[in-house]
Amino acid sequence: MADARSEILSRVRGALADRPSPAPVVRDYERTRVVDDPLGLLAERVADYQAVVHRVPTAELPARIGECLLARGASTVAVPADVPQPWRVPGVNWLPDEPPVPLTELDGVDGVLTGCAVAIAETGTIVLDAGAAQGRRMLSLVPDYHLCVVRAEQVAVSVPEALARLDPVRPLTFISGPSATSDIELDRVEGVHGPRTLEVLLVSA
């Protein structure tokens, strides 16, 4: 008996004996969309998911980080080791992920602060790619509160624009609001296993 791999491949070739030649893929859908105020759209769409969004001038970012954490009552906060130094405002017990924070410890922190790679205005989505100021995937997953900084130049309007900016071989996480479920009567409720609170600081000059 042939091995599974060659048998499946030969079944596929046999099944395609009619040599189907499908129509070429026509990509006449919108790759970009023109909107007046992409940042405003992002803020509105993120808020639609019951996430909290603040528009913040660059100079005020550290102060606003401090305010958010204080309002949340978050005193121990995990953070990727490479976040910009000014983000680590005084008065917070910062837990940098270097050496890697053990999982059980991460489960006990009050929150996590990260940046992001790209945001998608049209869908209210933030994408993390484990790059600068984002850290390992579990950092933004295990804590119950995620405070995320999005810079204006990271905002794409459409899904195609956003994907074009991303490198698919990096580990990617697309985040649209706090964790949620539609499993009870197909009605969305927020808050299951992922962070139950997502707060976004949208920074522009």
Partner: peptide, 15 residues
Amino acid sequence: STAERMNPYTSVWSG
């Protein structure tokens, strides 16, 4: 599927 603009989480990994 869930009638959302985007589902809450999408994970992508390569190897």
